[in-house]
Amino acid sequence: MIELRGIERHFQVGDERVHALNEVTLDLPSGDYVSVMGPSGSGKSTLLNVLGLLDRPDSGSYRLDDVETTTLIEEKRAALRRSHIGFVFQAFHLVPRLTAADNIGLPMMLAGAGPRARGARVREVLESLKLLARAQHRPDQLSGGQRQRVAIGRAIVMRPALLLADEPTGNLDRHAGSEVVALLESLNASGITLVIVTHDPAIGRRARRQIRMVDGRIESDSVDDAPV
């Protein structure tokens, strides 16, 4: 359960003061499927970064599972990020020297999980992603769609409650893109809260709830009850 109340975020770009988030108030119930759309510079990525605890709002309140996150020290925010949130990036951000399995296991390794527990969980994830055959391949030996699936595997290996995807299909062709979206939707169907930031209206329209942002404000927030 996510509650945003009056979130403000400003950036100083040269002499100009950019209002990236302006009085953003938003509730996301657990298991929600939300797409965030809007023109470049409308604040969608900033919203995602705030939701992901990567960015700290200048003012306002952000409660994640009833924990007020804006006043937490950085270390606690990192711990929340580790246990509650998974990220999927447009540029995949896989570590090039690590195999697919090691990339997926990276969050567990950083969290201090032993090789045995990690190996079992990574195998489980690889299986669910149908990537078992690629476990020992490095990113440069994988196709774009496979890379993004590995990145999604890494995002869910810690069993987060919230999955944040920033243009997950931006670097993929249509076919690979729709595969990735289908994978994300299946994860949502199993209970994970999914937030997708996208330029692509076709993908945005698939979400149950669609948020449109302009100039740092939520312009529209519509719930489409018709099943996909």
């Binding site: 270390e75 990192a78 580790r82 246990s83 951000h93 570590v95 990276l106 950083l110 890494r154």
Partner: peptide
């Protein structure tokens, strides 16, 4: 830089 950013996004504290 990107790898460091990633590690932080994955929940690695500054200390780590």
């Amino acid at each position: 830089v990107a790898e460091i950013g990633l590690m932080k996004a994955l929940g690695a504290p500054d200390r780590q």
